[in-house]
């Protein structure tokens, strides 16, 4: 049902705001000349959350602020920072919310343990199906 209702309000960025008058920063939509750096920046942009949208990465959003953040990512990557440093820089300002890759500590730890828990409980339950054979004489 993704579709039905798609309030792509995000196109209208901040509520009650008209369109900004300035063109976006040059690096918002201009790739870096170094292909390897651009690839790193792109990968990171897909993992950063647009602050004014409902649920989109800054790579996918047409919001102006997403453009500003793309420019920021590209300029920092071009300046030699690693994607993890850029991400940490943004998390320091906006918290974990800004990254689609949840942290591996604190309250989010349960998120990463969940698959192991499910597999573990499932395995315990499933093993009984095979074990019963030995403990029971076949009819």
């Amino acid at each position: 049902m993704r579709a039905l209702f798609l309030a792509l309000l995000l196109l209208f960025a901040a509520p009650l705001a008209a369109d900004p008058t300035m063109p976006p920063a040059a690096l918002a939509d201009t790739p870096l000349p170094d292909a390897a750096q651009e690839a790193k920046a792109q990968a990171l942009m897909h993992e950063l959350r647009c602050l004014v949208c409902q649920n989109q990465s800054i790579a996918d959003s047409h919001a102006d602020m997403a453009g500003d953040m793309r420019a920021l990512v590209r300029s920092k990557i071009a300046a030699g920072e690693s994607p993890d440093e850029v991400r940490a820089w943004l998390i320091k300002r906006y918290g974990d919310w800004v990254s689609f890759n949840p942290p591996t500590h604190g309250a989010a730890l349960g998120l990463w343990l969940a698959p192991l828990l499910f597999l573990g409980v499932g395995l315990l339950l499933a093993l009984r199906l095979f074990r019963r054979r030995g403990s029971e004489t076949k009819a």
Binding site: A14, V52, L72, S75
Partner: peptide, 15 residues
Amino acid sequence: DKTGQTQITLGSSGV
């Protein structure tokens, strides 16, 4: 702040 970079530096997400 013509390209919004300072706004991001502040951790601000809107006006």
